[in-house]
């Protein structure tokens, strides 16, 4: 088995990549994709800490990761619906162009 800190570093790298994407990309869908990557990095941490933790038979990490996946699915659905609504209103999905409060 690889050591625990290898998983933690991988998860930190994924989080940083997602953060870089969410901060730099101009397209609303790609901002959402970056957020999904950050959520996945958190899931990897849940599972890694569960596997290397003191009482893995309690299954807490697995259940936490499953709830987290469910919440991420809800977040993706609402986020993409918002992007579609914004597109219908502004005719663009570039986040820099959506800068009016009253359309």
């Amino acid at each position: 088995m690889p050591p625990l800190h290898a998983y933690l570093l991988l998860s930190a790298a994924l989080f940083a990549i997602g953060l870089a994407g969410a901060l730099t990309r101009r397209h609303a869908i790609l901002v959402l994709v970056g957020i999904e990557l950050m959520l996945n990095a958190a899931n990897l941490n849940f599972i890694a800490f569960w596997r290397y933790g003191a009482r893995p038979e309690a299954l807490t990490g697995v259940l936490f990761a499953m709830f987290s996946i469910g919440i991420a699915a809800a977040e993706a659905a609402v986020g993409l619906a918002l992007i579609i609504a914004v597109y219908r209103h502004f005719r663009t999905t570039t986040v820099n162009d959506v800068n009016e409060l009253r359309g």
Partner: peptide, 22 residues
């Protein structure tokens, strides 16, 4: 890491649903 069920849920939800939704 030995979390098979989460792995399948990941494939179903993320690869199957979120990517298609995008």
């Amino acid at each position: 890491l030995g979390a098979e069920f989460v792995s399948f849920a990941q494939v179903l939800v993320y690869v199957g649903a979120v990517a298609i939704l995008v």
